[in-house]
Amino acid sequence: MNKLPNNHSARKGETTTNQYGSGQAVTKGNGENRVGHHLPLHLPVLSHKRQTGIAFLNFIQHFASVIKTIFSELPQLQKQLNNCQQDLKQAKNWHADLPVPLLDRCWLKLEVLKVAELLCRLPVDASAHAPELVRFQELRNQGHNPDLAERICWDEFTAEACHLALRRYWEAQETPKYLWNLDSYLNLLRCYRSNVEQGNLSMPLLILPRGSDRQLLQCHWL
């Protein structure tokens, strides 16, 4: 598969990501790129991650407060939500007709979907799960270097198929066409099913992004 173009070459201390998503630290020195040992650079990164985590937690708390306010001030939405929770209470086991409320914040409307209807109403981006890319990651996890893993994939799928899968993946990252991806969908199913089987009545509330936002679908557990 094609290597990264020159305009993606790393500056000093940057981490580059190869075409399959595996990162490698690269530094520039004496006009050459080489794998670098940059332990001191980890300190500000960790600090930034800590700050980002705190900001994210604050956002989640604020977001939960906003959602609670929306439902408390709009009786019709609260009534729909109560009906969903009542259906969940009556469920004796996990099944595909369990409710998944979908909130449109722009129009303040609540659409109640069934688990079985999720993929039809909200298609997912599955480009990262293309067999060619999954196989490459399996080979990397087995200890093969990127070049050997790439050659094996070419032998098994052909170079053309690998290039196509890779192009589709990057196009999905650069110009998203879907509101969520396959991993998010499967995670919702796992959590919801686990909750039901354990007697936990927590229910997912899916929230559509505003029209002008480039955000993904958000999931808030009630």
Score class of each variant (00 low, 15 high):
Ala161Asp: 03
Glu160Cys: 13
Ala161Thr: 11
Gln137Arg: 11
Leu179Thr: 03
Cys106Val: 10
Glu117Leu: 08
Val124Trp: 07
Phe136His: 14
Glu174Ser: 04
Cys153Trp: 02
Gln142Phe: 00
Glu138Arg: 14
Arg135Ala: 06
Glu156Trp: 15
Glu138Met: 14
Trp107Ile: 03
Val115Thr: 14
Trp154Met: 13
Cys120Ile: 11
Ala161Cys: 12
Asp183His: 11
Asp104Ile: 01
Leu102Lys: 04
Cys106Gly: 09
Leu122Pro: 06
His144Pro: 14
Gln173Leu: 11
Arg135Ser: 09
Ala128Ile: 04
Cys120Trp: 05
Val124Tyr: 05
Trp107Val: 04
Leu133Cys: 07
Ala130Ser: 09
Trp170Ala: 01
His144Glu: 03
Glu171Ile: 04
Arg140His: 06
Tyr169Pro: 04
Glu132Ala: 01
Ala130Val: 02
Leu133Tyr: 14
Glu171Gly: 00
Leu108Asn: 09
Pro131Asn: 13
Glu111Met: 09
Glu174Arg: 09
Lys114Gln: 11
Lys114Pro: 05
Leu110Trp: 00
Ser184Lys: 11
Leu139Val: 07
Ala128Ser: 08
Asn141His: 11
Ala159Gly: 08
Glu150His: 12
Glu160Thr: 13
Leu133His: 04
Trp170Gln: 13
Glu117Tyr: 00
Glu171Pro: 01
Val100Met: 09
Asp183Arg: 14
Leu119Cys: 02
Glu150Gln: 11
Gln142Ala: 10
Gln137Asp: 06
Cys120Thr: 07
Leu182Arg: 13
Ala126Gly: 03
Lys177Asp: 01
Leu164Glu: 05
Lys177Trp: 06
His163Cys: 07
His163Gly: 13
